[in-house]
Write a protein that binds this DNA or RNA. Sequence first.
DNA 1: GTCGTAGTACGAGGACTCTCGTACAAATCT
DNA 2: AGATTTGTACGAGAGTCCTCGTACTACGAC
Lengths: 99, 99
Amino acid sequence: MRTLEHPGVEELTLDAVLSALADPVRRTIVAQLDVGHEDQACIAFDLPVSKSTSTHHFRVLRDAGIIRQRYAGTAIRSSLRREDLDARFPGLLDAVLRG
Amino acid sequence: MRTLEHPGVEELTLDAVLSALADPVRRTIVAQLDVGHEDQACIAFDLPVSKSTSTHHFRVLRDAGIIRQRYAGTAIRSSLRREDLDARFPGLLDAVLRG
DNA sequence: GTCGTAGTACGAGGACTCTCGTACAAATCT
DNA sequence: AGATTTGTACGAGAGTCCTCGTACTACGAC
């Protein structure tokens, strides 16, 4: 099975997290994951960009440690790393999601 | 007396605020304002960039509504718009400052 | 008035980002 | 096996951002 690289909790940087969340498309992804679309494939998200651009944004979120991704057949299941983010930057994710 | 443009509370956008806070130099400014250097001139901040780059970063922070600036002689006094930010995006500033 | 200080305006270089299309790889389904 | 689905790799174009130096303005001090 194919695997995907994820940074550890202690590797999360405020710089990467804030840069990732500064993009509106990526905040849309995070918001949709927050309301429980964790079973969706990347392609099923409602995004105003092409497929390759989607891949780019999901990768940025994964590299920043904001989401976790694992293969499920040909698709990928994404989920929010809420606990890791709360442990490293308490209140940040909630504040952004509320905004 | 010269004046400076500031956005109103209702004009603050998450996009502008997060983009502004995504830069490490600007977070340094915000952090120094947070620990009570609000009497300092811009030039007195400990930043690893040139004077004109400083001007740029202070302007981005002001345009995003994160700081307030007013002239005091030839210098400028900057201060955090903590209450405005807390009203618009509760918990966000604290989370970033804690990180 | 002259000098010094604090900040701005402007332009430029370099890097990065967002976007896309096309071509491709990996797993699944028929 | 062949077709379909999902996502990736790659390259390219356009735009943005960070950085700087130089020249300039506004205010205050002497």
